[in-house]
Lab assay of single mutants.
Amino acid sequence: MSIQHFRVALIPFFAAFCLPVFAHPETLVKVKDAEDQLGARVGYIELDLNSGKILESFRPEERFPMMSTFKVLLCGAVLSRVDAGQEQLGRRIHYSQNDLVEYSPVTEKHLTDGMTVRELCSAAITMSDNTAANLLLTTIGGPKELTAFLHNMGDHVTRLDRWEPELNEAIPNDERDTTMPAAMATTLRKLLTGELLTLASRQQLIDWMEADKVAGPLLRSALPAGWFIADKSGAGERGSRGIIAALGPDGKPSRIVVIYTTGSQATMDERNRQIAEIGASLIKHW
C-alpha cells in the first residue's frame, strides 16, 4: 500500500482519535458579512469528516447552483462504474471539434489522439474542462443518470439537468442544476469515506481534487503551510461562485467545507476574496 493510499485508508482512524471539535460562531459572522459585502445569498456548511456531524452552517438547506462543483460527483459516478466493471479508466475516447464547448483548455489539445477516461476526469476536476465533463456525462448516460446515481446514494436534493455550459445559467428560483450545502457536503463525505467506492477509487477521487489547479484564489489562499486540501470550485452566471473541499491540518483532511453564493453584482475577484476570507476565519478558529 502506498503512503497516499495509507493516508486515505486511515482518515477515519486518525479522526477518531482527534480531540473533540467545537464550532466557532466567528466564522458564521464572516459568512454573514460576506453576504453584506456581496449583496447576495451565501450558503455555508462545515462537517466533521469522521462523524458527519454538522459543526457550523448557514442557509444549509437553500438551493444554490452547483456550477462546476458537480464534476466531482460526476467522476465519482464514473469511478463507481469502474468498480462495477462497467468502465475502464484506460479506455480512450475520441471526439471532434464539434464536441468542444466553451472553456476546454485540455480537451482542445487532444482532438487528434483523444483522451482516456482517467485523463478526462483529471481534466474535468483539476482544470474544470467543460468538454471533458460533457464527454464523461455521455459515458454514464447524461445528466439524468448522474441525478439517479445521487438518488441511489441517498441524495434526493442534488440534481443535474443540463450539460456544460448551460448548467451554469443560475436563474433565480430555478431548481435545475442545483444542490443544497448540506446535501453536497453529505454526498461528498460519502464519496470520500464511505463504502460506495473502493479504496482505490476513493484515493483516485481525492487525488484529482488535491491536484486542483484553478481554485488557488479561494480556500487555498488562506491555508497555512502543512495543511491538506482537496477541492473543486465552480463559477456561473449572475454572480455565482462555489467551492467544495476536504481539508485539515497535519497533512490530512478532517472536515468537509461547502460554500456557495449566487445573485451578486460583485466582480469575480471580490467573490473570490470573500470566500478566501471565510476560509481564513475557519482556519483561525479551527
Rank of each mutant, 00 (worst) to 15 (best):
H24M: 11
H24A: 11
E26W: 09
L28V: 08
V29F: 11
K30E: 15
K32T: 07
D33P: 10
D33N: 13
A34F: 15
A34W: 02
E35G: 10
D36H: 08
Q37I: 06
G39H: 12
A40V: 09
V42A: 08
V42Q: 07
G43I: 10
G43M: 06
G43D: 11
G43Q: 06
Y44T: 07
I45R: 09
E46I: 08
L47N: 01
L49F: 04
L49M: 02
N50P: 06
S51E: 04
I54E: 06
L55P: 06
L55V: 09
E56L: 09
E56M: 09
F58L: 04
P60V: 02
R63F: 13
F64Y: 11
M66R: 02
S68Y: 02
S68A: 15
S68F: 07
T69L: 13
F70N: 05
K71P: 06
K71L: 15
V72Y: 03
V72M: 01
V72W: 02
V72L: 07
L73S: 01
L74A: 01
C75Q: 00
C75W: 00
A77H: 10
L79H: 05
V82A: 03
D83V: 02
A84Y: 01
A84D: 04
E87T: 05
Q88Y: 12
Q88F: 07
L89V: 03
R91G: 10
I93T: 03
Y95T: 10
S96C: 01
Q97M: 04
D99Y: 08
Y103V: 13
S104P: 06
S104K: 04
P105C: 02
T107I: 03
T107S: 08
K109A: 04
K109Q: 04
L111C: 01
T112P: 06
T112C: 01
G114H: 11
M115S: 05
T116W: 04
T116P: 05
V117F: 01
R118Q: 15
E119V: 04
L120F: 07
L120M: 05
C121N: 00
C121E: 00
S122C: 03
S122L: 12
A123E: 11
A123P: 02
A124H: 01
A124F: 07
I125D: 09
M127A: 14
M127N: 10
M127K: 14
S128Y: 07
N130S: 15
T131L: 04
A132R: 02
A132H: 00
N134F: 07
L136A: 07
T139H: 11
G142W: 01
P143M: 13
P143H: 10
K144L: 05
E145L: 14
E145Y: 15
E145C: 11
L146I: 01
A148C: 06
A148R: 08
L150Q: 09
H151Q: 07
H151M: 06
N152T: 09
N152V: 13
M153V: 08
G154V: 07
G154L: 04
H156Y: 04
R159N: 12
L160N: 01
L160P: 12
D161R: 01
W163T: 12
W163D: 01
E164R: 00
P165M: 02
E166L: 13
L167W: 07
L167P: 02
N168S: 15
N168D: 14
E169D: 02
A170K: 00
A170F: 00
I171G: 00
P172W: 08
P172E: 03
D174H: 05
D174K: 03
D174Y: 05
E175N: 08
E175W: 06
R176G: 02
R176I: 03
T178G: 14
T179H: 03
M180F: 13
P181I: 01
M184A: 06
M184F: 12
M184T: 12
M184S: 12
A185F: 08
L188F: 14
K190A: 14
L192P: 13
T193N: 05
L197W: 01
L197T: 08
T198R: 00
T198D: 03
T198A: 01
L199A: 08
A200P: 04
S201C: 00
Q203A: 05
Q204S: 07
L205D: 05
L205E: 06
D207H: 03
D207Y: 03
W208M: 05
M209C: 14
M209D: 07
D212Y: 11
V214Y: 14
G216Y: 15
P217D: 15
P217A: 01
L218M: 08
R220W: 01
S221C: 12
L223Y: 09
L223R: 10
P224S: 10
P224I: 09
P224H: 07
A225R: 07
G226D: 09
W227Q: 09
F228D: 15
S233V: 15
G234Q: 08
A235S: 00
A235D: 15
A235N: 13
G236A: 00
G236I: 12
E237H: 01
R238Y: 10
G239A: 06
R241I: 11
R241G: 14
R241K: 14
I244T: 13
L247M: 10
L247I: 11
P249D: 08
D250K: 12
G251P: 10
K252M: 13
K252P: 04
K252A: 09
P253D: 13
Y260K: 15
Y260H: 12
S264E: 03
Q265W: 11
Q265A: 10
T267C: 09
T267E: 10
D269K: 15
D269W: 10
E270F: 15
R273P: 14
A276M: 12
A276Q: 12
A276S: 11
A276K: 06
I278S: 13
G279I: 15
G279Q: 14
A280P: 09
A280C: 13
S281L: 14
W286R: 06
W286E: 04
